[in-house]
Amino acid sequence: MNVIDLRKTIKKNSKRILIALSAVIVLAMVWEIFGAPNAIIQPINYNHKLHIEKAKLTCVDCHLFVETMAAATIPNIEVCSDCHSGEPLSKSPEEVKLLKYIESGKRIPWKKIYSVPAHVYFSHRRHVTIGEIKCIQCHGNVQELTEPASHPLWLATMKNCIKCHKENKVTYDCLACHH
């Protein structure tokens, strides 16, 4: 097929080509929006259930500042080493990983799965201590998780924030969160 023939076929079938192309674009967009997002894999396969049931820990014991500060904080070696030091407490290979981090003094590179953009002020204290919202409401039933959550259960979008603020009749003044 020479170039002129190719041009002719394209001209003849231009509508079909256009439809096919737009279908591909639409499919790509649908996949981007609704498709499964990339699962987040943490450096250590942490078991929330075990720590809560066996070690009888509560959320605040490790996420130290959830009631008193804006950031709840993700516990790192200095918190873990309160219990885990020297001899392993279990036969889990995950604990061996943790002990290696503690011994070498390297910080565990946890990946954040819940975050807000820089122009948003989000305070855990405001929600947990003042608003008396249970952790479960945004973070789900973490006490049943045997491995780290791979996706955020609740997306911190403005739509979701405002929805809850309206339902609970708390301020949705822009300045309450944006400055």
């Binding site: 002020y121 305070s123 204290r125 405001r126 201590t129 003042i130 300045l175 309450a176 400055h179």
Partner: peptide, 17 residues
């Protein structure tokens, strides 16, 4: 100038806590 509105949020939080 925002009258340092971010400071107000912190103060409010402290007072309400």
């Amino acid at each position: 100038c925002s009258f340092c509105a971010h400071r107000l949020q912190k103060v409010k939080e402290n007072a309400r806590a």
